[in-house]
Design a binder for these strands. Structure first.
Length: 671
DNA sequence: GATCACTTGTTCCCG
DNA sequence: ACAAGTGATC
């Protein structure tokens, strides 16, 4: 008790200091810095590698390192900070700026994705590659690519060669994987002839439509940087700092090496928090970093300042299963931290869990003095997240969910978005192709083929060829349906062409249509900063294609376990801890892959439980309807309309520091 | 090429 | 639950 009081005083003292220094002069980078953080911030060695567990103060050390560089007179324009989400970088810089450090607004702080986008936009790069960094936006449904990739799949329909749409989707994924993993760099890499042919057809479609797969952004940049190391288009960085290194894929890691070639390189990461294998992350990269980079200066941060002692104990106990028994502690408690308020709770059904957790939240707010903004709910399935959000809405508790958006789920939303895209850039071939075909099951692939062949031969733009067809200056065979469709699209564009942004939003994403809700909300939130259709489009595209760290506010946050990485919250509730959800299991995988996946799921659980500073509840439920179980992928036992779930194996791995599991009603009664 | 009724097959997590 | 694929018919 006494100790935690002391800590609280220290904490306020720190706050006091930073405000004071801000008023008078910029702070010195090493103020109040000791031990390992001081070394990390102060060393001039390069490269440096920092292995930092959750809550061990790595962003603190990073910030101080940046502050030092600026104080020492480094040109901020020559400093690159790479983070995983697009606002993490901005936050970092903003926090340093708030400390009164000059020049930080000039630091290049962004995701690698947006760095590559800017690089590929440069004329010199276009002339080299002939590729336009216009990302092809797609979503996946039932294993098939939708939206802008749908006409691509259709146009690549070559019976008996590339398989059906699912197989073609898989092939595209395989290519993205190959690029992300730089498999073509492997000496033994052999290309299957069908793959080679597929690649050729894919590349020609992308080339003709002046676009890129999102997965090509980094490999294309790398390709340029490798071939043109002296190009003026490449920024010459004196210092490169990379956060969440374990989540980068190989292409990204190699690109970083190139960008840091003439300067210092610092990487920060944690193998235990590597949770992005589905993005082809290459976590071995951080473990082997010292082998691939001579004279690596190593640092370890393993004292968890964020979490209460009991939480550190269970987190460490869980994650040690991923390592050999002799490996020792992965995460150590911070002496003096409070013990924490830790609960393992089970409910009778999914409905009970949803309602029960909403009551837990209510009780935290009304009985225990928590603010809504201090509560974070992590759900392994969005379905559960939405249900809890609804309950909290009913209880009039402010709440916000942060699922990767279903903005473009509906056909009408896709059509409206494409219309905007074509309005902003009438030369946008992808949007034109999409709009021409989206009302037809066949995507009018045959008629479009005639037009495309003609354009490839003559160098015409498909829009111009269509214009000629409509007025009768051109005859390519049967093109009646596609001409009719083109006329409709043209009229639709003309109708919205002169609208100011506010009215454009109303016209494209009408207020009362459910399908338009997400796009409308995204647009309206930043409406006043947007000038013209181009800016509106760019804004929406960025929101849709780039991950964002969920911002805190005066509301309960609900999100996936993945999204929670990097966040801190006073109270954390992890729900749905049953087999099939956490850990997610894919029974079709070969045993070695299954084992690898289980380890990653364990890391995901580890990330989730290490977000809290005080309260942690790990929750599960016992019974579920067979249909619902199938839908969310829960493992079950028994027969009938309602079956039993199996508690997550991770609940059995919490170790001696975990409290006994209790029934939901008992937890509510005790609060 | 469009439309229909039908069968068949895979997903279901996560950025 | 949802989307692809099939085949008949217009």
């Amino acid at each position: 008790m006494c100790r935690s009081l002391v800590r609280r005083i220290n904490f306020s003292w720190n706050l006091f200091c930073t405000t004071v220094t801000k008023e008078f002069a910029s702070m010195a980078w090493h103020d109040g810095l000791t031990g390992r953080a001081l070394e990390i911030a102060g060393t001039a060695n390069s490269p440096i590698r920092v292995m930092a567990g959750p809550g061990t103060g790595k962003s603190f050390a990073l910030k101080r390192r940046l502050t030092r560089l600026l104080e020492e007179g480094v040109n901020p324009k020559n400093v690159l900070v790479v983070t995983f989400t697009r606002n993490a970088a901005a936050d970092l810089v903003q926090e340093i700026a708030a400390l009164g450090v000059d020049g930080c607004e000039d630091i290049v702080a962004s995701t690698l994705h947006s760095y590559c986008f800017r690089l590929l936009m440069k004329e010199a790069v276009f002339e080299f590659s002939g590729r336009t960094p216009r990302p092809l936006i797609s979503i996946s449904k039932a294993g098939v690519l939708q939206f802008e990739a749908a006409p691509l799949l259709e146009d690549m329909n070559a019976p008996d060669r590339f398989g059906n749409k699912r197989e073609r989707t898989q092939r595209i994924r395989a290519f993205e994987a190959q690029w992300a993993r730089l498999q073509s760099d492997d000496p033994g890499w052999a290309v299957d002839p069908v793959d080679a042919e597929f690649h050729e057809v894919l590349a020609s479609w992308l080339q003709f439509h002046e676009c890129m797969l999102i997965g090509e952004l980094v490999p294309e940049s790398l390709n340029f940087v490798r071939s043109n190391p002296l190009s003026a288009a490449i920024d010459q960085f004196d210092h490169v700092l990379v956060d969440e290194y374990q989540d980068l894929n190989k292409a990204e890691q190699v690109l970083i090496d190139h960008l840091a070639e003439h300067g210092s390189l610092g990487i920060v990461g944690d193998i235990d928090q590597s949770i992005y294998s589905f993005r082809y992350a290459h976590p071995d990269g951080i473990e082997e970093f010292n082998a691939t980079h001579a004279d690596t200066d190593d640092h370890v941060l393993d004292e968890c300042r964020r979490c209460p002692q009991a939480v550190v104990a269970i987190a460490d106990h869980v994650i040690r299963r991923n390592h050999p028994p002799a490996a020792g502690q992965r995460l150590n408690p911070m002496p003096g931290n409070p013990d924490g308020d830790l609960h393992v709770v089970q409910w009778n059904s999914m409905t009970d869990e949803v309602g029960g957790l909403a009551s837990v939240v209510e009780s935290l707010i009304e009985e225990q003095g928590y603010e809504a903004g201090e509560i974070l709910i992590l759900c392994p399935r969005r379905l559960i997240g939405y249900a809890i959000r609804e309950k909290l809405d009913e209880a009039k508790i402010p709440v916000h969910s942060f699922y990767h958006d279903e903005a473009l789920d509906e056909d009408k939303a896709q059509e409206a978005f494409s219309l905007l895209s074509l309005l902003a850039n009438p030369k946008d071939r992808v949007s034109l192709r999409f709009l021409l075909g989206c009302n037809s099951q066949s995507w009018l692939a045959k008629q479009y083929r005639l037009i495309r062949d003609h354009c490839e031969e003559s160098g015409k733009h498909p829009w111009d060829a269509l214009e000629e067809l409509v007025v009768g200056d051109l005859d390519l065979g049967r093109t009646g349906e596609i001409e009719a469709r083109f006329t409709i699209i043209k009229e639709a564009i003309e109708n919205i062409a002169t609208l100011p942004v506010k009215e454009l939003i109303d016209a494209l994403f009408p207020e009362d249509d459910e399908w338009a809700e997400v796009l409308r909300e995204m647009s309206i939130l930043s409406m006043d900063d947007l000038d013209g259709s181009g800016e509106l489009l760019n804004h929406l595209r960025t929101k849709i294609t780039q991950p964002e760290m969920p911002e805190a506010g005066e509301f309960v946050r609900i999100m996936s376990l993945h999204k929670s990485k990097g966040l801190t919250s006073k109270a954390v509730i992890v729900c749905g801890c049953i087999e099939g959800l956490v850990p997610f299991r894919d029974e079709k995988l070969p045993p070695a892959e299954k084992a690898r996946m289980l380890k990653e799921q364990r890391r995901l659980f580890y990330v989730a439980i290490t977000r809290c500073t005080q309260f942690l509840a790990v929750s599960s439920f016992r019974r579920i309807e067979t249909k619902a179980a199938f839908r969310i992928g829960a493992k079950t036992s028994g027969r009938g309309r309602v079956v039993s779930t199996v508690a997550s194996q991770f609940l059995g791995e919490l170790g001696p520091a975990a409290p006994a599991a209790m029934a939901g009603d008992d937890l509510l009664a005790s609060m």
